[in-house]
C-alpha cells in the first residue's frame, strides 16, 4: 500500500528530478536548497531587477510593458518557489496559496475589464 505524503517529491528517493543544490534527507525528502543555492538565486534576482530598471529607461515601444511584466512574474515565482519553499513543500500548501493568487488575478482582471482599463 502506498500513501504519498508528498512534500512535493518525497517519494523520489533517487533524487533524479531534483534541482542542483537541493539538500536531501535520509528519507528522500527535501529540506530546501543549500545556502549557496539561495545566494545564487538572490544574485539572479538582483540581475533581473537591474534588467527591469534598464528596460524601464529604454524606448523599445510596445515590447516594454510585456517585458517588464514577464520579468516581474519570473522574480515573483522564483521567490515563491525557492525562498518560500513551495517547490519542496506539500502540494496542499501550493494549492492554498495559488487558489488565493489566481482568484485575486481573475477577480481583479474582470473588475478592470468592466472599467475598460485595457482599451
Amino acid at each position: 500500500m502506498t500513501i504519498d505524503t508528498s512534500p512535493a517529491e518525497a517519494h523520489d528517493s533517487s533524487h533524479h528530478s531534483s534541482p542542483p543544490g537541493t539538500i536531501h534527507t535520509e528519507g528522500g525528502t527535501h529540506e530546501g536548497a543549500s545556502d549557496f543555492t539561495y545566494v545564487k538565486i538572490a544574485l539572479a534576482l538582483m540581475v533581473l531587477t537591474g534588467a527591469e530598471i534598464a528596460v524601464s529607461y529604454m524606448d523599445i515601444g510596445k515590447a516594454q510593458v510585456p517585458l517588464l511584466l514577464v520579468m516581474m512574474a519570473v522574480k515573483f515565482f522564483t521567490v515563491v518557489l525557492y525562498f518560500m519553499h513551495l517547490k519542496y513543500d506539500n502540494v496542499l500548501f501550493k494549492r492554498l496559496f495559488y487558489s488565493g493568487l489566481f482568484l485575486a488575478l481573475f477577480v481583479y482582471i474582470v473588475a478592470l475589464l468592466t472599467f475598460h482599463f485595457f482599451e
Binding site: 502506498t2 504519498d4 508528498s6 502540494v91 496542499l92
Partner: peptide, 18 residues
C-alpha cells in the same frame, strides 16, 4: 521515516495530499 511501502505502485505525485 519510511514514507512509502516498497514494491507497490507509486501514486500520482500530484495527488500528494491524499
Amino acid at each position: 521515516t519510511t514514507i512509502t511501502d516498497p514494491g507497490v505502485s507509486e501514486p500520482d505525485p500530484d495527488d500528494g495530499a491524499t
